[in-house]
Design a protein around this nucleic acid. Structure first.
Lengths: 323, 323
DNA sequence: GAAGTCCAAGAAATCGATTTCGTCAAGGTC
DNA sequence: GACCTTGACGAAATCGATTTCTTGGACTTC
C-alpha cells in the first residue's frame, strides 16, 4: 500500500503539499508537477479510510430495501444511484428480506460506517431510525412513510392511483370491478384500496363492496389465491384492480386457469411487470414511478447532507396511469 | 459521536481496557461490568472507520454487476449476500450498466475503500483487475471468466446446458430447433450456442445449421427481432433454444405476433423469468443457478480473504434443465 | 524473605490523510 | 530602508480504535 508519505518523499515535498495537490488547494506549478509525477510513478491511491477518519464525511449513501428481487425496488435503486453517483456518492445496497431484525442491523452499520445518509424503504412503519436521527445523520423514507414525523419521506399518491385505476376500468365498460390489495397493516395497500373504493362507490352507487375486496400478501401466490377466490363468487367480477405487480402475475395465472384472459377480463395493476410484456396485452398499468421515487429520495437526502435543516418534508409523486 | 475515550472516562478505565472488553480480550469481571455499563449508558457505537484504519481489514465485500435490473444478477446478489452476511460481512452492490468505465471506477473504489474482496461479473472479459491483484486483494469472477488466469472464477456449464436444452426439444418431437444466442463476443453466448449445435448436429445429421442460428444482444428487443426473422424463413423452425431470459420475453412476443404460441412451438430458455409464469407454460427452462453462483463465488472469496493462497480455481456449476 | 512468574491494565505508538499553525522569503508601500 | 502583506509550504496535531510496551501488584517457590 503506497502512502502519502512515500509520495511526499519521492517528490521531495511534505505530506501537506501532497494533500494540497490532491485536493486542489494552492500550490506552485513546480510542486504540483513533482507530486503528480511521484503519485503516478508509485500508482498511489489515497486511503479513503484514513481520509474519512480525519474528514468525518463519507461519500457513501446506504439504501436499505426489503426485497432486492422485486423489480420495483431495483428500479428505485437505479434512481437513487443515478442521482448519487452524479453527485459523487457511492450507493451501498442492503437487502433486509422484509426482516426487521436485518433492517436494524443495517441501520446500525450505517451509523458505524459513518455513511453520509440513509434511504430506507421500511419493512415496517415502526422501523426504528432513532439511532440515526440521534447521530444527526440524514434519513429519507421512501415508498412508505415512517411513524415519526421528523423524517423526510417520498411516496406516491396511492389513493389517486387506485382511484384512477378503477375509473379507467369503469370507463372501459366493466361493471363489477374487484380489488386485490396488500396486507391491511401496510399503508400503501390501504390507500390503493381506498382509491378503488371511492371510484367503485361512485359508479355502482353501493357502498357494499366488501365481497369484491380481497386482502392478500403482495406476493405472487397471494394474488393467485385471491383471484381464484373472487372467481368463485356467485356473481363474479369482470375486472379487477391489483395493488402490486407480483400479485398481478398470480392473478393472471388464476385467470388462465379459469379459462379467462385479458382484455375480456379487465385488469389494472400497480407497478410494471418487466419482461412479462407478452401477457400484458390490454392490462392497464398504474405506473408507480419507482425510478423517480429513488431520484427524489436521493435529491432530498443530498440536500440534507449538504446541510439543509428545514423541517421534514413529505414529497408525494403522482402515480400515472398508462395504457 | 461518542468515542471510546468518553466511555473510558465514564468507566474510570483506560481506552485500552475498553477496547479489550469490546474485542473479547482478557479483562477482570469488574472492569468489564463498568465498561459495558458506560457503553450502554452513552449508546456507544465503535467508529468502524477508525477501527479499520488501524486494523487494516474491512468486513465489506464489493459485488460489481453489469445490470441491477436483470433478475439473474439480483438472484446472484442474493446468493452472495446470504453467504457473506452469515460470515459477518456486508455486501456493497455496485451497478456498472455494462459500462467498462463505471466498472473501472468501482474497481478503483474497491481498492481505496479497503474492501476485503471483490466479486465481479465482468462487463467485458478484458476487465482490468490488475490494480486489485497488485494490492493483494482477493477477486472472484462470476458468470463469465476473465482473460487472466490467476483469478478465481465461478461459471456454469453453458455448453452442457445448451446441449440439454436442445436435446429436450428433440426428445419432445420437434425437428427444426433454432437457436437465438447472445453477442458472438460473449463467452456464455458462444458456449450455449455450441451446445445447441452439438445436439442439433447429432439429431439432424446435417452440419448446415447456420440458417437456424441468430446472434442477438441478450436484450428483449434483440430476441423479438431474431425470432421474427426466424419465422420468415421458407422452412421456419418449430422450436428454439434462447440463450437468456430477456431475449425469451422478446421471442415470445414475436411468436404471439405471428399467431404462434407455446407449447405448440417448442421453447427452451436459459434462465428464469420471474413473474412471467403465465407465459411459461410448456416452456423448458434451463435453470442457470444464479443464487448458487453467488454463493459459490462468495465462498471462494471468503476462503481467499481467510488466507487461502492455493492456485486460482475455476468452479463450474451444472445448469439444470427443469420442467 | 528474596527472586521469579503472572496478569490486569495504563501509557503511548500506530494506521494514513487532513488541517492548523507557524516560518520564511518575495514583493509592495510610504 | 523599515514595515506590512502575501503566498508557498513544512512541522505537528488530529481523527478514534487497536496494539505493543511497560508497570505494578498478587501470588509462587525454595
Amino acid at each position: 500500500m503506497v502512502t502519502i508519505y512515500e509520495v511526499a518523499a519521492r517528490a521531495g515535498v511534505s505530506t501537506s503539499t501532497v494533500s494540497r495537490v490532491l485536493n486542489g488547494a494552492k500550490v506552485s506549478a513546480e510542486s504540483e508537477r513533482l507530486v503528480r509525477a511521484a503519485a503516478e510513478a508509485l500508482a498511489f491511491t489515497p486511503n479513503r479510510t484514513a481520509s474519512r477518519l480525519r474528514g468525518r464525511r463519507s461519500a457513501v449513501i446506504g439504501l436499505i430495501i426489503p426485497d432486492i428481487e422485486n423489480p420495483f425496488f431495483t428500479a428505485l435503486a437505479r434512481g437513487v444511484e443515478n442521482r448519487a453517483s452524479a453527485a459523487g456518492y457511492s450507493v451501498v445496497l442492503c437487502n433486509t428480506d422484509e426482516d426487521p431484525e436485518r433492517e436494524a442491523t443495517y441501520l446500525e452499520i450505517a451509523v458505524a460506517e459513518h455513511m453520509a445518509g440513509v434511504i430506507l424503504a421500511p419493512a415496517d412503519d415502526a422501523s426504528d431510525v432513532s439511532r440515526l436521527v440521534a447521530h444527526q445523520r440524514p434519513v429519507v423514507a421512501v415508498d412508505r412513510s415512517l411513524a415519526r414525523a421528523d423524517v423526510d419521506a417520498v411516496t406516491v399518491d396511492n389513493r389517486a392511483g387506485g382511484r384512477s385505476a378503477a375509473e379507467s376500468l369503469f370507463a372501459a365498460g366493466f361493471t363489477r370491478v374487484a380489488c386485490i390489495t396488500g396486507p391491511s397493516s401496510v399503508e400503501t395497500a390501504q390507500l390503493r384500496m381506498a382509491g378503488w373504493r371511492q371510484a367503485a362507490t361512485r359508479h355502482t352507487g353501493s357502498a357494499y363492496l366488501d365481497d369484491l375486496l380481497r386482502y392478500a400478501d403482495y406476493r405472487v401466490e397471494g394474488g393467485r389465491l385471491a383471484m381464484a377466490d373472487l372467481l368463485k363468487l356467485p356473481d363474479p367480477p369482470d375486472a379487477a384492480v391489483v395493488a402490486n405487480n407480483l400479485m398481478a402475475a398470480g392473478a393472471l395465472d388464476a385467470l388462465h386457469d379459469a379459462g379467462l384472459d385479458t382484455p375480456d377480463f379487465g385488469l389494472a395493476v400497480f407497478g410494471d411487470l418487466p419482461f412479462a410484456s407478452l401477457g400484458r396485452r390490454g392490462i392497464r398499468v398504474v405506473d408507480v414511478p419507482a425510478r423517480e421515487l429513488g431520484e427524489a429520495a436521493a435529491t432530498l437526502l443530498l440536500d440534507r447532507i449538504g446541510g439543509d435543516t428545514s423541517p421534514a418534508r413529505t414529497v408525494v409523486l403522482r402515480a400515472v396511469e398508462l395504457k
